Every structure is written in structure tokens, then in C-alpha cells.
Simulated scan of single mutants.
Amino acid sequence: MTLMRFASVLGLCGILSGCETFGDEVGVSEGLVSRHANKVIVATSQRQRADRYLLAGLLLAPLALDAAQDETDADTAITRLNAHYQTMAELYEAIAECSTTEIETIEADENNSCRVQLESHPAQNEALDKDGYSFEVLAYEVQSDLYFLGKSALINLDLDDKVKDVIDLDPTALVSLLRELGELAPTLRRGLATYRDGIVIYTDAVYESVEDGCDNEKPKPKLCSSFKKRYSRIGALTDEEGNPVRGLSKVLADARQDASGKQWQLSKRQRYAILSHMDTACARAYRMLSDPKGTDCLNLEGRKKLVTAFQNKPIDS
């Protein structure tokens, strides 16, 4: 599609009220991505949205790296990962500067609202820091890098015709892929193992935000029951109709419901746990390079910048 045709389509969508994609791009935070992302992980604040992107990277980056078939694939995936680190760092740094979604208390006498006035004017020749008022543009850059990571994974796995199933993380479709692509089963199984670790990380974060309600709220959050049983054997948990459900699937479904309206966030440990997953996958891909260009996965410029962003006081837990 040419740029002119694309512009024409957007213009037509602006006229036709039924064009949901255009409406989302114009009127919803994060654009068209938001509708689909909220079906997986509910996020309301800018900080939660940044953490949601980090969780998405946990799934896509290792898959792209582990699916590399040769040196070119590995080099491309590592380059994509470095770009993802860079844009995630810029997003976290902006939120650390200030947030527009709520007054996020950092210390007893300090908050992180963009409504707090600057104490002084920047120098005329001083570069201005991005903050929460640049969130949408920075989020778009993160979305773009996640798209290219996902595209690399699908191309490396030769799954171009299975894009929707993989993006939706449809377990039934993914199991079907295991049967169709026996030689890729180890890569896909490792990807699903990473997905399970992602469930644990996310549900831990949500449980921390609702734990007090397990004693004080009526009705109690759903996680109060399922969280402690997430490692139970198959059949130990049931749904509302009494049908047996799997522990991690149940706790994820409950976390999605309980997260709405709660101030959940990833802790420092959880953010570093996600980074550790990416480091491990990157190291496997790095070994495929015959000319490593003088740097390893732990010294990628984007990674160093992301670690620095994790250490910024306003986003620490």
C-alpha cells in the first residue's frame, strides 16, 4: 500500500464512524494496540502500560532469538532486541520524569505528577527531557520495536500464515503448531515455558496490589483463592461451572479481572527477572555469530540504558 493510498484510507475512516481502527488511533491511549492489549493485561496508568510492554517483550524477544536459524537471523534478532531495550528505556525514563495518569507517590513528601510545576526554567541551550507528556509517541516506538521482534520470530519459524494465532497466544493453536512443526518443538516449548514464567511474574504483581483485600473486601478478589493454588495438579481448581481448570490458566484469568482499577506494578525484582530471560536467550543467539563486533549481550547499549532506567527512583518499588 502506497503512502497516498494509506492516507486516503485514514481520511475515509475519519468520515465513516464505523471505522474502529481509525477511532482507536485518534481517541484511545496507545491507539489501536490498546483494544487488543487490554484483552490480555489490563493497564490504566502509564506505568502499568510500560510494564505491560516489558511483559510483551518477555514473550517476543526470546522467541525471536531462539528461532534464529543462522547467523543472519541471530544478528537481526539481537539488533531488534537492542532497539527494544532502547525504546523501553526512553519510555521508563519519561515516566520517571513525570506521569500524567495519576499522582504516583514516590516518597512521603514527593509525587510524580506532571501537574507539579518545574522549580526552574531549563537553560536556553539545554536539551529537554521527555516526560509523561510524550508518552504516546514513545509508546508508539515501543510498539514498532515489538512488531519487528514478533515479525522476526514468525519469519524465523516460518509461521507467516499463523500470525494471528501466535499474536493472540492461543494455546490450542500453539499446541497444533507443535504437532505440525516437530523440528521446532524445542523452540516453541521453550517459548511456552517463558510464557508460563510471564504468568507467574504478572500474577505476583497483581496479587500484591489486592492482597490486603483478601481480608478486608467483600466480595474478595478472585486471586485470594486461586493465587496460592496456581501450582496445583490438574483438576484441583474448577471454574464457576465446576469444570476442572489448569492452575496457571485460572490464576491468569483471575488476575486479569482483579487488575482492573488496581495500582499493580512490576517490582524491581520482577523487571530484572524479565531482563534475565532476555539475557539468556540473547546469549544463545550470540553464540551463532562468527563476528560478534566486539560486544556481548550484557553490554548492548540499549540494555545498559534500560538498566539505568530501572534504577531511576520514581519507578522503583
Rank of each mutant, 00 (worst) to 15 (best):
R287N: 10
Y140S: 11
D291I: 12
G294A: 08
D70L: 14
A185S: 12
V42I: 08
T105M: 11
F135L: 00
T194W: 07
K228C: 04
L10W: 14
T79F: 02
D258Q: 04
V175N: 04
D158T: 08
N243V: 11
E107D: 12
N82A: 09
K305M: 05
C214K: 08
L3C: 07
I155P: 00
P292S: 02
L146F: 13
M288A: 11
V210G: 07
I201W: 06
K304N: 13
I201Y: 01
A253I: 12
T76H: 06
I95F: 00
Q124P: 02
D109G: 05
S29G: 02
R52A: 10
T187C: 05
L55V: 05
P314R: 00
P244E: 10
R287S: 14
L81P: 09
T238I: 07
A7V: 01
G31C: 12
V175M: 06
K130S: 07
L178K: 03
V28H: 04
S134V: 00
S144I: 08
I199P: 02
V245H: 11
L192M: 15
D197M: 09
N299T: 11
I41Y: 14
A61S: 15
L300D: 10
D197A: 05
V28A: 04
A205R: 00
D145R: 15
V142L: 11
L149P: 04
N38L: 12
E141S: 11
L12G: 12
P221M: 08
H36W: 14
D212E: 14
